[in-house]
């Protein structure tokens, strides 16, 4: 658990406090992984080792569960995570074309992050905005009735934003874990 920056020490503390608060540690792995992903944004190796130690499980077991469920990720999210809904309503309105378009523009596939750490791409199940299908979410903001041709502009907008805030890049989100 080598905290590479103060933010990480705080994060581990928060996770430890959550685990300490559990009435018992049996059968809690999935809950703890959810919590950890919430705190760290993803589940790097060190975090999995930490959880295995804290719950008295083998690291292989923890890794097995992380790899089994698609909502757990070992890849850090981008500064602006992009999620495309693949629920039924969005799907029938061509959500997979949106995914392909994002993949084409960013040069990454689902589950990956751009080399500059700005964007990551994920897919979601129905987010409850079927009226707006197909739906894409960028850094928490919902874009509805998406057409493939809209993607380019949205991404450009966030690229510009990133340029503005170059100075406070620090170690937000993407930490120095290799």
């Amino acid at each position: 658990m080598s905290g590479c920056c103060d933010g990480n020490v705080e994060r581990y503390k928060e996770l430890q406090a959550y685990i300490d608060g559990l009435p018992d540690k049996k059968g809690r792995l999935i809950g703890v992984l959810h919590k950890a992903q919430g705190i760290f944004g993803y589940l790097p190796r060190e975090v999995q080792e930490f959880i295995a130690g804290a719950l008295g499980l083998s690291v292989a077991k923890v890794y097995g569960v992380v790899k089994f469920y698609s909502f757990f990720t070992m890849v850090p999210k981008g500064k602006f995570p992009i999620s495309v809904c693949l629920g039924t309503a969005c799907y029938v309105r061509g959500a997979d074309d949106i995914v392909s378009e994002v993949e084409k523009i960013l040069g990454i596939t689902v589950g990956q992050v751009t080399p500059d750490g700005l964007f990551s791409l994920d897919t979601l199940r129905c987010v409850g905005a079927c009226g707006l299908a197909p739906v894409m979410i960028v850094a928490g903001r919902v874009f509805g009735r998406m057409k493939p041709s809209d993607v380019e502009g949205i991404i450009a907008e966030y690229r510009a934003k990133a340029g503005d805030s170059e100075k406070d890049k620090a170690c937000e989100g993407v930490c120095c874990h290799g």
Binding site: L57, S58, A60, V62, Y63, G64, F68
Partner: peptide, 25 residues
């Protein structure tokens, strides 16, 4: 490995046709 030997070197990972048994990471 896990129950009899309590070594815990192996675990099932992935799903479907990609499911295998592997060490951590």
């Amino acid at each position: 490995c896990n129950d009899v030997q309590t070594v815990g070197a192996l675990s099932g990972v992935n799903r479907g046709f990609n499911a295998v048994v592997a060490p951590a990471f």
